[in-house]
Nucleic acid binder design. Sequence first.
RNA 1: GGCCUGGUAGCCAAGCGGGAAGGCAGCGGUCUGCAAAACCGCUAUUCGCCGGUUCAAAUCCGGCCCAGGCCUCCA
Length: 463
Amino acid sequence: MVKFYNTFTKKKEEFYPIEDKIVRMYTCGPTVYDFAHIGNFRAYVFEDLLHRFLEYIGYRVIRVMNITDVDDKTIKGAKKEGISLKEYTDRYIKYFLEDMDILRLKKPDFMPRATEHIKEMVQLIKKLLDKGYAYYKGNSIYFSISKFPNYGKLSGIDLSNVKIGARVDSDEYEKEDVRDFVLWKEAKEHEGVYWETEIGRGRPGWHIECSAMSMKYLGETFDIHTGGVDNIFPHHENEIAQSESATGKKFVNYWLHCAHLLVNGEKMSKSKGNFYTLRDLLSKNYNPVAIRYLLLSAHYRDPLNFTEKSLKQAENTVKNYNEFYQGLNICASEKNNPVIKQEIEKAKKSFIEGLSDDLNISFSLSSIFNFIKNINVFFSKGEFGKENVKEVKDFIEDIDRVLCIIEKKEESLPAEFLNLIRKREQARKNKDFVEADKIRDFLKQKGIILEDTPYGTRWKKIK
RNA sequence: GGCCUGGUAGCCAAGCGGGAAGGCAGCGGUCUGCAAAACCGCUAUUCGCCGGUUCAAAUCCGGCCCAGGCCUCCA
């Protein structure tokens, strides 16, 4: 049984999708005006874990991640460089997709761009106008929150506490209620970005794209909607209001939000200059898999404090984990140990148990590390056969469908080095340790570490 | 000011009423020709602080301190 903490009910709930064995899931994606930073990626890694885990336990996941390619920041950025909006956003979309690959993030089934769904947004806004939930002020269109009694339920916000008139755009027309939000923005000549539509000349507000695109690909009611906690209000609150007003149906069954990433204990912000992009870290030679591991290894609803020290720790963990995985091959014994299979079953059960409990990854990881410890005991005692190697490798690869932290190195050595290793083994048999150590030292200088095991000598390259 | 999280060893991090998981780092040992790897042991009489409830609290309640989030665009 899988449980998730649902922001809407503020409780951990058993998870049942609408359609048996199929999960429809929407994850708020990037606004493509710059490189994404690791804070953004924390959310995407969390969503990736959710996606992969649901598939691991047998669900078919249909996932949508939107790309916001029209808003104030993208328009401003394109204008500043004197290029078209499309040219500008295409560039950052490309970078984003590259970053996703580097962090081994699974591609959602759909990554719709807002600018390619103007028609759907217009239809939705029209519906809201027809039903009386939206109104024109000038040529802009607003959603009237007073018409939606449940407004504020997701965020638990008390509307009377929302600061009134905190920000008034000079060219924004008077809204009926300052807390109303914009669905459609009247074209501004200086922006030069607008669409001629039946509801007027303009561009969409931010919130409407997620409602229009999620419902297009997932239906009017779907299972899971995710994002960072900062999306709860007003973004997701507004999505619920406009979607449910338009359809008269429940929009989303489970809302999952991840906490923020801190950098050195502080909020990440441009003014402090304390944010990292993925590229910043890669240029410092950090292992991208370790970045993934670090973002993955803390519970998604707890704030995660990112430091380079913790990243180095993550690198060591990932390295040890992979050395375990890669080092199994050496074993060539025919003697099979039947206990290994039981260990695998035990570990797999705990692994699933942890993640089933609102993605308690720490619990799952501890079961895997305990498993590795147990396997190492059998391995170093020589109670481990060729068949066991396959079983254990298969298991590590199996859970890697969720974790994605193994590195399959198809490394080889030049024949001369392999000959040296054979020569050294012969020397050791002859008790010629001077010669043996000479060869070992030589190879070490070449970046090759030798390890003698009960099954023979194995080698690995220094990173 | 209102609402909401979190504070567990040197660092990261589970546990959320009755034995303080796991990872990283460090030290000692076993194994080894020597190493490496692995394993074993040690490193929190104690879980931000102060009270309270209870036979029993890191876990529940109250107060306080610290950090962070939302209330305005933000993963």
